[in-house]
Design a protein around this nucleic acid. Sequence first.
DNA 1: TGCGTTCTAGAATATTCGCAG
DNA 2: CCTGCGAATATTCTAGAACGC
Lengths: 400, 400, 400
Amino acid sequence: MKQNSNVPAFLTKLWTLVEDSDTNEFISWSQEGNSFLVMNEQRFAKEILPKFFKHNNMASFVRQLNMYGFRKVMHIDTGIVKQERDGPVEFQHPYFKHGQDDLLENIKRKVSNARPEDTKIKQEDLSNILASVQNVNGKQESIDSRLNTLKRDNEGLWREISDLRQKHSQQQQIIKKLIQFIVTFVQKNRIMGLKRKRPILLNNNGKKPKYIHEIYDEPPLEHNKPSVSGLKNADLTDDVVICDVTDNDTEITEGPSIMDQSGDVEIVEVFDSNTVSQTDGADNPGQTNSLVFEPEETTISTYDSLPTSSVLQLNKPSGLSLEDPMKMMDSILNESGAISQNINLLGKVELMDYLDSIDCSLEDFQAMLYGKQFSIDPDILEFFSSNCPVNLRDFSICTA
Amino acid sequence: MKQNSNVPAFLTKLWTLVEDSDTNEFISWSQEGNSFLVMNEQRFAKEILPKFFKHNNMASFVRQLNMYGFRKVMHIDTGIVKQERDGPVEFQHPYFKHGQDDLLENIKRKVSNARPEDTKIKQEDLSNILASVQNVNGKQESIDSRLNTLKRDNEGLWREISDLRQKHSQQQQIIKKLIQFIVTFVQKNRIMGLKRKRPILLNNNGKKPKYIHEIYDEPPLEHNKPSVSGLKNADLTDDVVICDVTDNDTEITEGPSIMDQSGDVEIVEVFDSNTVSQTDGADNPGQTNSLVFEPEETTISTYDSLPTSSVLQLNKPSGLSLEDPMKMMDSILNESGAISQNINLLGKVELMDYLDSIDCSLEDFQAMLYGKQFSIDPDILEFFSSNCPVNLRDFSICTA
Amino acid sequence: MKQNSNVPAFLTKLWTLVEDSDTNEFISWSQEGNSFLVMNEQRFAKEILPKFFKHNNMASFVRQLNMYGFRKVMHIDTGIVKQERDGPVEFQHPYFKHGQDDLLENIKRKVSNARPEDTKIKQEDLSNILASVQNVNGKQESIDSRLNTLKRDNEGLWREISDLRQKHSQQQQIIKKLIQFIVTFVQKNRIMGLKRKRPILLNNNGKKPKYIHEIYDEPPLEHNKPSVSGLKNADLTDDVVICDVTDNDTEITEGPSIMDQSGDVEIVEVFDSNTVSQTDGADNPGQTNSLVFEPEETTISTYDSLPTSSVLQLNKPSGLSLEDPMKMMDSILNESGAISQNINLLGKVELMDYLDSIDCSLEDFQAMLYGKQFSIDPDILEFFSSNCPVNLRDFSICTA
DNA sequence: TGCGTTCTAGAATATTCGCAG
DNA sequence: CCTGCGAATATTCTAGAACGC
């Protein structure tokens, strides 16, 4: 009995056992040769098995058969309680056939790996799934807290933005007020100063009171009407009347006296504004005009097209016109789209009328006046000192 | 007779039993061959069954038949005639037919449903849960990345807001400086020009009442009418009335005297401002006052309550007062709560004293000059009315 | 042999078997009475078992024993001495004891509940896992919606910020324009008004070149000194010198001619500008220049120390100078880094040239009215130059 | 590690019991 | 009472597992 190759001992022993004719009394091939029979189970176990194995238990033998894949062949009479001896026990295996010992090597012993594949895999799956779920849960908590953080963050952002919006709005208000103020101020200033740039008519008669009377008592009625109706002629009723003091010795005499005190030189300019040039172009050289007083066209082009090149503006006489600021303001308004209404303030006919009248008196007044020291209205000061309860600390200007 | 394959013993035994001609006496095929008959139930159970099974109970036999899906074939007379008992018992099964033993393997024994329902459901559940968990995991990754994106987004937002805050602060600083500048500028300008708008009292003779009468009682009424055409004719009666001091030798004489001292020209202003009214209230009719020089109340109400009706402001003589800008600035400050300190600059008593003194000379100075009506350059008006297409609605200034 | 209660047949049969003294040859209680012995296994199986069971297999008997929890009692010699084969087989069960048949009911047959333990536990796990997964799913939906909400929120925030940015930019533009405007305005105003504030020399001879010499060569030196040393005295050398044209009949006569046409009064100003000094550098001492027109150094230092005491400024005649606003604006521009270029506008040589020419005419004009020279309060200048740390680079105004 | 032995358990079928219709 | 079926048990075959070699 040789066992070559890697065929388990049990198989070779079994093969030998079944082949051996000496044991045919207890164990032998079936007739078809594809199975074997154990005739007298009890005697076989007690007498034969011990010769080949370490035991005499039919059970152990059967266990081995099962372990190698042998199956018991069921008989119809199985289960019948036979008083006498039991019928033979038959086992078969696809690779256990008579005369074909070479098939034995195909018979493999079973290994206990069936279960793990099934149940344990499920367990592993369960464990994995469980772990996965818990993992997801943990992550979810993290996500949740992060979400809450983000949510609070966003709320903070909204508050910030709201704050910024408010601040912006406040600034906008400030700017608006500022612009309003500036517009008004410029208007005022213009009324007072801008007109001055215009040619001043020397009131040859020297009778300013008289002139005033003329203006307000007599002529005013005349030039007021046109100014009410139209816009532009009113301007012609211009402003100031300048008398060249150089011609006037007495004045000159006085001037120097002042000059001696202030240490400044006197310059006597004779302004002629476009107004004058328009009405009395012959008298006013165009050059002078364009240089000093032609605010309209020149100025506009200057500011609109070259808002940044102030130098150029300055080089342009018209640029000096006080109309420029207004233009600039206009451009501001245009660009910012913010205060277009203010523009209208000046464009109104009513305004024109009013301004005309104001202009007349103001300019006349200023014409004679500039050069004096001004004082502030105490009331205004008081107003400012008492009318500003609001906290302006943002502006870190400290009062002495 | 061996039963290979996986056909249960019962089926093979049954098949054998029915086929066996030796047992035809007790059990045999029906005539059609699609069912079998048990003739002598009693004897069959006691004599035949034990030869094939471990029992001799017809009940057990029937139980097995039922277990494999066999059904008893009910005869019409079964329930009718009870006397005819012990008639043959007939059972049938779709796959139990005469001569077709190959169909036996289709006959399945009923099994307890517990297992399949249990284990198989678990498998399905496992699959479902696994898929669900994986799905959740996938979603979580998505959520996670979205969270991170949002987080970065928020960080960006914070940076943006920080930037905006900074820019706002910078703007605030700019505006502050601007306001400071303007305040200072206006102060300067005001000192120089603001006062001029006030009526100038001829200081020489101290005949303020006289002057006032001249201005307001006589001529004003006349030139007011044309101004009525505008909005507020009262406005046209404007601010300043300049009487040419040249007419008044004495006055002129006095003016220069002052001038000689301060190095300034003399201006004689006729104020019918509250200042004047305060000092000489009796001489100034309240009407005139409010009309021309009472900037505080009138102006304030005008600007504060009607910030948009600049036209009105302009038409109101008091509106023209350079105090308006200050008021406006004040309102700016008040609202923005920004530059309250600046206010104080003007509120000092020292300032008042100084201003008072300035005022005196200024008014004197103006008195000699004011008297002319001003008009605005129509070109400018036109420019403003036509050159501002931009929408400036943000600034809620409404045109009248 | 009756089997009461619910004790399985096997147990009662076994008990009977063991108890039955007739079978003591094959099966009996152990000496301790806590187990039973099967002496002749083979004979017991073939002779005894069939009498109680439907089989004669020792294996089936053992299987039943195992099924009811009986355990085989291992003998020390088992397996050691094979010769002494077929020694008695011993089984024991905690509730299978001699004389205590009442314990039998405690013996429970094993049911294929390996499943329940396994399957049911799995079921619970499955349920838990399933619930957990569903829970997670629910949370995830919540998170998802919250994420979406946040996302939309963030988008809104971005829009808000974009809006704020735009508004800020618009404001910035407005401010920029405003500053440009103010700069220009101040420039104009300065040219027109500032200069006037300076002492005007009545150029009686009408010799401007000559005038220049006079200013810079002779008188300037005198009043410059005080202004250099202190701040305020220079200011007192006020502004305008007004000459009453009424004195001059001829001029008046000419004026009215114009006036009749334009309806304006003529004003004659006497300017003394830095322009003059530049164009005629040799004639103008640098000192005078720096005093009057070189606002930079001197002015800057002045402003730093007294930023808040505007009152003082007001009280200081020099504070009236229009150069202050420029300085302030300059500081604004410098600090903001925005419009610093505008500053240069005033510092340019071209500008100077231009201003000079303008000044000549302007001053001539003002000469008659202005008579005093203005100077800036150095304190104010200093304040502005040092008190504006804020950066305004956002104002992208470029210098020419 | 693989194989053998033994004990025990799993699984399928078988037998029995009992209940519901 | 019979039929069909659930359920528990029984029987059989096979497998798991522990242990030893």
